[in-house]
Design a protein around this nucleic acid. Structure first.
Lengths: 216, 216
DNA sequence: ACCTGAACACCGTTCAAGT
DNA sequence: ACCTGAACACCGTTCAAGT
């Protein structure tokens, strides 16, 4: 009782791209899905459906899901566009790490991938190199350069992950609100005096605190 | 042709606990699995097998997997045992955040859960309260207290996540080693002068750098 | 060469039934 | 009251086959 297909052409649904399936269009489609529906929604089957293709066709161009995710991280790393090199080390470091921070902030799914799956794109190395160079130029010894780099990077990772999951006001979390104020006076006194919560650009401000502690 | 069970008793495998299944024994078993085999291995089916029980029996005591994970985080938070309160704010903050860091370092699966699933245990609030109190006692205004707390916490989260995935030497990562030294001189010069990599207890050292930047 | 349907070995969870 | 087998709606991935 199904309606027969009146068209003489195959009734495969129309694709949005021309020519054979290829790696670029697969990654394009995966980026759209992940940005609109989140990382969990990006299953190989959902991706194939978005491409109007059988689930297994993707595997002709991409080894497995892990490879796909790494290709997506390459795209994000490509989107890191720091401004021209600044002479002042402190300005240089701030500019480069802020560019990295902003790119990962725009694609928050990427930071989770980065730390949870040991995935990293070599395309980020030019930016890392600039931070190392600026730290060295500021007069730090090699050991202090690497320590300072790790401090800056770890703070950035932690900030992005936490912000991603508590987007607006970390202090409105139900856990803190549900607590008995009398039991945690030090915490509650501070929170009570912050009706609007911390500023939205606290990354920039805390980054300067770190540089205060790291540089002379 | 299977060998018939010679025993008159039911041939259900012997359990390791007495009495009916309960929430405590479920969480106990889950902790063992996750410590020995990792978070991915902790499926509801694997957990049931570890309990010598049908997969669905667990659901009589625990709503779903998310609830189980939260109960496990409660256990980790319970394991945070900071030393007695110190009068000096800087010593107090160092002691409390180090206790949190060490507990999460011992159960590295927990930090991923904490940031990736918005899970948090209220049992950590006493420790958080001590840090807030110490920051306030050091003379910081409420706004600076909350900023400083977030800086310390974000650094700790980032450090734990990164260390968990690059256990020994962050600079031995294939990505950096595979790079062309001539292309990234600032990076490579520093790495070349660090044959042994950064010290293993860089958390303590970088925490002091943060406190340098945050306090007077 | 390129794409695909069926199948395999898994998941978390629901349901209706067993004791 | 407590536990369970079968089933549902999913996964990633392999295989052998289609055009």
């Amino acid at each position: 009782m199904t309606i027969p297909d009146p068209s003489p052409t195959p009734r495969r649904r129309q694709r949005r791209y021309e020519g054979p399936l290829n790696r670029a269009i697969i990654v394009d489609t995966a980026m759209v899905i992940v940005r609109e529906e989140g990382l969990d929604a990006l299953t190989m089957r959902r991706l194939a459906a978005g491409l109007r293709v059988a689930p297994m066709s993707v595997y002709r161009h991409i080894d497995d899901r892990q490879t796909l995710l790494l290709a997506m991280l390459d795209r994000v790393a490509d989107g890191v566009r720091p401004p021209p090199i600044a002479a002042d080390p402190r300005a240089e470091i701030t500019a480069v790490i802020t560019a990295i921070h902003d790119a990962l902030h725009d694609d928050p799914w990427a930071i989770g991938l980065l730390v949870a799956n040991k995935l990293a794109s070599p395309k980020i190395l030019p930016a890392v190199n600039r931070i190392y160079t600026a730290l060295t130029n500021s007069g730090l010894a090699p050991r202090d350069v690497s320590m300072a780099y790790m401090l800056i990077w770890h703070y950035t990772v932690g900030e992005l992950l936490d912000r991603h999951h508590t987007p607006v006001d970390p202090f409105s979390r139900s856990m803190v609100r549900a607590a008995d104020p009398a039991e945690y006076p030090g915490l509650m006194t501070v929170v009570a005096q912050l009706p609007e919560g911390p500023p939205s650009d606290y990354f920039a401000e805390n980054l300067q605190r770190i540089l205060d502690g790291v540089m002379r």
